[in-house]
Design a protein around this nucleic acid. Structure first.
Lengths: 129, 129
DNA sequence: CGTAGTCGATTACGCTTGTAAACGATAACA
DNA sequence: TGTTATCGTTTACAAGCGTAATCGACTACG
């Protein structure tokens, strides 16, 4: 383990998350390239993306590498980890930390496609072996 | 359908959610009774609970009924619904709306207990019939 | 009748978030 | 060399949130 990082990762907000998604999909990117990915769908200006990138850098969720006069941005946290903590948060908050009730809820709400069911079944088989 | 409620339900914050949980568990309750349920675990003062209750009333998530000089508070939205939208939000944001990847993730992160697995398996059986 | 307790309502205040404009440095081009 | 386009940084500002103190009304007790 590396030294002295309490590394209690600061929460990433909703808007920031959109930026992370762009970087997870392809990195490193310049601020303008990130904007190309997200400004359209979210209706943001480049300035907004710059702000979000700075905040993410401050939160140590994104790293910068100088490239001439500008920076290239890359994720410092793995999507896997982010998704993990977020899922756990939800399961803890809403389902007492148990995954089964979440699953039951999704089932009841018809949020499961045939495909989902098949895949989950396959996963279950694996887990049992 | 009833008239003129755009009824786009305002987001319930984290702290507010704790209050909702108390009311979902037992209602109606006075502000002090809610405090008894939550002030301990969250380290809040009664004043904080009162603020949260007011905000929930403003958001139409909680209803008040006068009882002598004070109010009795009850949830106006069903836990089922809240849990539903929150789960869907997560699944949409992180897993492209598909439940199977969420499940896969939980499995991979060892977030599933033996019990969970058994229950989910049972649910699957039901779904298939 | 005064006073202490209790309610809900109002006000407070610092932090985060969403959204962006303004600024200063620099590189590229004319 | 002067100007323009482009970076990252700084500043801005309203809304939402966490956390609470204060206030005005009222009740119950002495």
């Amino acid at each position: 383990m590396s030294a002295e990082s309490p590394e209690q990762p600061e929460r990433i907000s909703d808007a920031e998350h959109a930026v992370m998604e762009a970087l997870w999909q392809r990195a490193p990117l310049t601020a303008s390239e990130v904007c190309e990915q997200v400004c359209g769908t979210r209706g943001w200006s480049l300035a907004t993306v710059k702000t979000l990138l700075s905040r993410l850098v401050a939160k140590q969720a994104v790293a910068t590498a100088p490239d001439g006069k500008r920076f290239l941005y890359s994720p410092r946290i793995a999507r896997q980890d982010y998704v993990g903590t977020e899922s756990r948060r939800l399961v803890d908050r809403l389902f007492g930390g148990r995954a089964a009730p979440l699953f039951a809820h999704l089932a009841e709400a018809d949020a499961l496609t045939e495909e989902d069911i098949a895949e989950i079944e396959a996963l279950l088989q694996e887990l049992k072996s």
